[in-house]
Design a protein around this nucleic acid. Structure first.
Lengths: 236, 236
DNA sequence: TCTAATAGTATTGTCGACAATCGCACGACT
DNA sequence: AGTCGTGCGATTGTCGACAATACTATTAGA
């Protein structure tokens, strides 16, 4: 594998004109690998429970096993993979127990994010969220609808401008997306209901009503958990 | 480095008597390395801002650079280290901004944990927390006092029995400990006050008063942030 | 004296190969 | 018939070496 070094030296002598020239921080290879595999897991391309063969993955991604293993260690730290010594890495399976825990954590993060937004700029946040909801409302298939749903919650947390909340949420959203694909037949709450739930949350920001936002968020999460775990084994 | 394989075959023919025989899950080497380095950072042995030379660390820990880098990738994923390509890994520095964000995230996690405890078994949780407070009250030096403080919050979250909250909290607690050492001169709230704040929280569990717990927790965090960022640059 | 090009050094990034371990299938023994 | 031992194939764990890059010191030039 040839290293891509020539990509660096471009612009022969130009001496940084406007401030528009960024320091060119290229993320590390393990980071890119982790992102790629994470996306593959979230999108259902790599199903839950399956083993990740290092040799295969390395070949597919065009890298050696070294950087690959480093990237996979990240996903292990995120709890997305579990490592069994001398056996390999496996994608976690989403049991009802895990789904409950995941939403418990998501609730913690998103409630905190919402509270933070209310202390910053709830009105413009509500407007931004409303746009995503419009996309959701105009979604034609279930896939686009779910994507908009995810976008809504990602935007919600990012509006809190908290690196740590965002980082924690990214992991949880990955699990959520994985869950959506694995249990896709359960995750259809009826288009209208879903849109309305989200719109209510957005409007609670516009109306600057922290208590209402919190209440709606809790209800929203409870609904999702109920949908995803109903009819399944081991009730709470 | 000799592999410890002989630890596996013990008990010659005994056919699992009581359930006390665990599956003996030995954690992976990168995981152990991550734990070791994490502890070194949390305890202040490796100060914030310092670079982690791979060759040195590998020699000290008695491993090759491969497993070491894998372990370090975990800490990078946790946000404890930042990676600059072709430059190396550096321990993050705790700016006031970061301290605020850290406590925002801690608040999110611990409030959720507290809420969960109230839905499970608040009384026995309060009792367990009271024991830690006794240790804190009998601490002779500042070091032991801080350790008990950390133990209190670790126990608090673990009592919620949520793997995800615990995992997120572990990262945040590491940052907290690092912060305590880096700014040790600021983190002395006066022994009596600190003990009383914690005891109030524990008693709010015993009294099954979720709203009070929440309120005390928020105040507790705000106090810590104020202490750690006061007199420092850039106010909120 | 200050700037700029350059060589040297140290560190990281990547790779290929070897060693260790596990699961499985086949066969022998009680 | 069931259980234990053994060899085989495949995968992971680990290591050492090489390549690429960035920082530093030195030196030539204006």
């Amino acid at each position: 594998m040839a290293t891509k070094a020539a990509e660096r030296r471009l612009a022969p002598r130009h001496d940084t004109a406007r401030g528009a020239m960024e320091p060119l921080v290229q993320e590390s290879t393990p980071s890119m690998i982790a992102g790629r595999v994470r996306e593959a897991i979230a999108s259902g391309l790599i199903p839950p429970g399956s083993q990740l063969g290092e040799a295969n993955l390395a070949r597919e991604l065009g890298v050696s096993r070294g950087p690959l293993r480093e990237g996979l260690q990240r996903l292990t730290a995120e709890g997305l993979l579990i490592s069994i010594r001398n056996r390999g890495l496996f994608v976690i399976e989403m049991t009802p127990e895990r789904v409950r825990d995941m939403y418990l954590a998501r609730q913690a993060v998103e409630r905190a994010a919402a509270e933070q937004i209310h202390q910053r700029d709830p009105v413009s946040a509500g407007a931004a969220l409303a746009k995503v909801i419009d996309v959701m409302a105009s979604a034609r298939d279930q896939h686009a609808e779910s994507a908009a749903d995810v976008s809504f919650h990602e935007l919600l947390v990012s509006l809190a401008a908290s690196p740590r909340l965002s980082r924690m949420h990214e992991i949880l959203i990955t699990e959520t997306r994985m869950c959506i694909h694995a249990l896709s037949d359960l995750y259809l709450p009826g288009e209208a209901v879903r849109v309305e739930e989200h719109r209510a949350i957005a409007q609670s920001f516009t109306g600057s009503d922290p208590a209402l936002t919190d209440e709606l968020l809790v209800a929203h999460m409870s609904d999702a958990v109920r949908r995803l775990t109903d009819g399944r084994l081991e009730p709470a």
